[in-house]
């Protein structure tokens, strides 16, 4: 009887998964015959993108550095704001329940608005360029880091906090010495991970005019300067791979 039940359950789950996927494939208009035309893309790249136009290399590198700077500012400033907020948004350190709910709600709002939406809203007021992009990253990442850090605060071991409280220390001292040293490695690791994500996000923000190498790529695409697009793409590849490598090295070896 039990075994029978289990079989029925398995069949039901498999059919459910199948139905969800068939439904999704229909939604995206998935068509194997059209997939065969992918050869055209290869031909397009082979004939129109080569040879790369290295004359613009300096300009591309300059814009790549701006992308890097957007990501650096977008990451560090969001950490700076998120860290104090996360203590208000953690059950064990918040001064009172009201602030806890308020800050939690604010953080999840920031988190659920994508960077690109923040940028679209900010650009009319701040104008096109890297500043709007960096600010968009900051807003979204305050939400992301704030949630992560407040969860670490709540999960921190209570032992040393209790000991510091027992000597007659203030709550602020308990936070500084009982919680922060424990969660610091996690915070740094998460921050470096967000930095990697922000590099990629700032490329996308470039498409809507928020500066950096992403914007250059989009401009070259629109004026059909494919030989320049190739240079943009190569530099982006090198930058993303390089930063992912360095960042993960720091996260695993140093922290």
């Amino acid at each position: 009887m039990d075994l029978e039940n289990k079989k029925v359950k398995t069949v039901l789950i498999i059919s459910l998964i199948a139905i969800v996927h068939l439904w999704s494939l229909r939604g995206v208009g998935f068509d194997l015959r059209r997939l065969l035309k992918i050869g055209n893309t290869i031909e397009f790249i082979a004939t129109r993108w080569f040879p790369p136009d290295w004359s613009i290399l300096n300009k591309v590198l300059g814009e790549a550095i701006i992308t890097l700077q957007i990501a650096i500012v977008g990451t560090s400033f969001s950490l700076l704001v998120a860290l104090p907020l996360s203590f208000l948004a953690a059950k064990n350190t918040t001064p009172w329940e009201g602030i806890y709910s308020l800050v939690r709600g604010f953080l999840s709002f920031l988190r659920s608005v994508p960077e690109i939406v923040f940028a679209l809203v900010l650009i009319p007021a701040l104008g096109l360029g890297p500043f709007a992009g960096a600010l968009a990253l900051i807003f979204h990442n305050i939400g992301v880091l704030g949630k992560l850090i407040s969860e670490k605060i709540e999960a921190a071991d209570k032992g040393s906090q209790e000991a510091i409280l027992s000597v007659g220390a203030s709550n602020l001292s308990v936070i500084t010495f009982g919680i922060l040293p424990q969660i610091m490695p996690d915070i740094l690791s998460e921050t470096f991970y967000r930095f990697e994500v922000n590099i990629r996000a700032s490329l996308i923000l470039g498409l809507i005019g928020a500066g950096g190498i992403g914007q250059l790529l989009f401009i070259h695409f629109r004026i059909f300067a494919y030989q320049k697009v190739l240079v943009d793409t190569l530099i982006i590849l090198i930058m993303v791979i390089g930063i992912d490598y360095i960042s993960s090295l720091i996260r695993t070896k140093v922290i």
Binding site: E162, A163, V167, G168, A169, F177, P181, M184
Partner: peptide
């Protein structure tokens, strides 16, 4: 009123002297 614990409750990542000086935090 000092207190000592079963699991010692020290700050693991910091030095011995820093941990001992925690005793002054009340002052």
């Amino acid at each position: 009123v000092g207190m000592i614990f079963q699991e010692y409750n020290l700050i693991e990542r910091l030095s011995v002297l820093t941990n001992v000086l925690v005793g002054r935090f009340g002052y």
